[in-house]
Design a protein around this nucleic acid. Structure first.
Lengths: 209, 209
DNA sequence: CGCTGTAGTAATCAGTTGATTACAACTATT
DNA sequence: AATAGTTGTAATCAACTGATTACTACAGCG
């Protein structure tokens, strides 16, 4: 039996796998708020409660860490969509499909890490490393919506457009000024449609789900 | 009469006003590609061909410089829309208005500075300085489209959504992979509609207009 | 117990960065 | 021509940052 170290032990000593996951979660928070250039490996380390040296050694470089964090964010969106699509009855209209996937997306981006890390990735299309990555992530989601969900290219495009507007509004923290800015409330309402209340409910929590 | 200094003079010695404009143009290029945190005042200075110290002293701080650059980007979008709206005949359908303003927007974001600086601004909604600024800039455009252009809230929202998707596709440099990625070509085509060719034509030039 | 691999850190380093200061060069006014 | 204001820079600084190295501590295995 282990000695009693279950409560607030100074060094829980995680496995490689668990620690990786923990660092990526911390990096997601840090990169989301500060961007790639502004997110320091030291901030990630502090967020994870470990040393800065360990963060760098675990992923080789800050660049590689960001790539993996961004990739995982896209993975989660894809997984969320796939699992929702798997439960389609098959007779939904394109509009109904949009509503279902829209709700799933609202759940996903309640995690500001997913939301903002992807947005930061998209703004680095010029970068030799991040650029190809960003295009691949985005097109993967597009294909999922168009093919697996079975929307036409037009409907899929419109769905992606609405998603990008939701991204922007949430990134800007529009929900913070809903009370004092009637126009913001109107725009947010028209954009999120039936999901408005659900999104707002999740928005005020520390993290989604 | 001035002495002959019109050809490649080492120090043209600009007026305060002209120099400000030149620095902001340089900063627009630098911040666009590197983001706020990644864009150094030294890179701005080199882009403008002056010393780093002068960049900082002219604007007080890097933060203030970014605020002014972002504000000017939003101003240009607003001015472009306003001048197009001023030429409305008054009997356009909402769809026609969207097409006209869409074309104007395509012209504007051919300048990657405008496009990306605004996107970077939008991702900093949490920042006490940039946050209020980003919301104000965005809502200003929304009101312009909804009120001055006379679209309803629904049409205006849809127009903004399409704009955010165009932003994302251009930021990711989707046009760079149009040939090897058929899905990218399809998405871009459906998104830009009648303006596809016009946008691409401008995309390959050093700068818009 | 000794050995080996793994988790984790402290210390350090070279390069960068925003900002400040003091100073030089030019221009206009009187 | 002396004065004063403006344009612009070189030099410098303290703080920061990603990465490397050498080290410690612990766990499993024979």
């Amino acid at each position: 039996m282990n000695v009693a170290k279950d409560s607030a032990a100074p060094h829980p000593r995680l496995s490689n796998e668990d620690r990786r996951e923990q660092i990526m979660q911390a990096a997601s928070v840090v990169f989301a708020e500060r961007g790639y250039a502004g997110g320091t490996t030291d901030a990630v380390a502090k967020q994870a409660g470990i040393s800065q040296a360990y963060v760098v050694r675990m992923f080789g470089s800050k660049e590689q860490l960001f790539v993996e964090v961004a990739k995982r964010a896209a993975d989660r969106v894809a997984a969320g969509f796939r699992s929702a699509i798997a439960e389609f009855a098959g007779n939904e209209t394109a509009h109904e499909k949009q509503a279902i996937l829209g709700k799933v997306y609202a759940d996903l981006v309640a995690d500001r890490g997913i939301l903002l890390v992807l947005m930061h990735l998209f703004t680095m299309g010029h970068d030799p490393t991040f650029g190809p990555n960003s295009r691949e992530c985005f097109l993967r989601i597009y294909r999922l919506v168009r093919d697996d969900a079975g929307m036409g290219p037009g409907e899929a495009t419109q769905f992606m457009a609405q998603g990008m507007l939701v991204n922007t509004l949430l990134a800007m923290r529009i929900p913070d000024v809903l009370d004092e800015q009637p126009d913001a409330a109107e725009l947010f309402d028209y954009c999120t449609g039936a999901q408005t209340d659900g999104i707002l409910e999740m928005y005020w929590r520390p993290n989604g789900a």
